[in-house]
């Protein structure tokens, strides 16, 4: 559930491929996810376990079937914590540049 397990789960092309497949078609069975993939059923099953451990997918029972759903909550948290924060830096740099070009002092501390 921590960031480490999410990053570890995402650091594998097969697992990202499985997430893409669920994004395109949410709520698939293991059999459906195995179709047209160059992976054994066992490998797919193992990758799904790691994704579930990281809370990136949720497995819901529907009758006799187990359906896999993508869970967007941890990716959203990572994005806010590790991407949103750094995206703001270039904006600040360009506003510093603007201030200095316009001749204002920019000794004042950043917010």
């Amino acid at each position: 559930m921590d960031d480490d397990s999410v990053f570890r789960a995402l650091a594998d092309v097969s697992r990202r491929q499985l997430l893409d497949r669920l994004f395109a078609n949410n709520g698939q069975t293991l059999n459906e996810l195995c179709q047209r993939l160059a992976m054994t059923r066992q490998a797919v099953s193992k990758h799904l376990g790691i994704l579930e451990e990281a809370n990136l997918i949720s497995v819901q029972r529907q009758g006799r079937e187990k359906l896999h759903f993508i869970n967007p909550v941890p990716i959203n948290q990572i994005s806010e914590r590790w991407i949103g924060k750094f995206e703001r830096a270039p904006l600040r740099a360009s506003s510093d540049l603007k201030r200095s070009l316009e001749g204002e002092s920019h000794d004042e501390p950043h917010e």
Binding site: N26, G27, E32, N55, F69, P72, V73
Partner: peptide
């Protein structure tokens, strides 16, 4: 898709 007649989203947080 398993169930093309409905749309579903699941959100899980601890």
């Amino acid at each position: 898709m398993t169930n093309p007649t409905n749309s579903n989203f699941v959100y899980v947080t601890y």
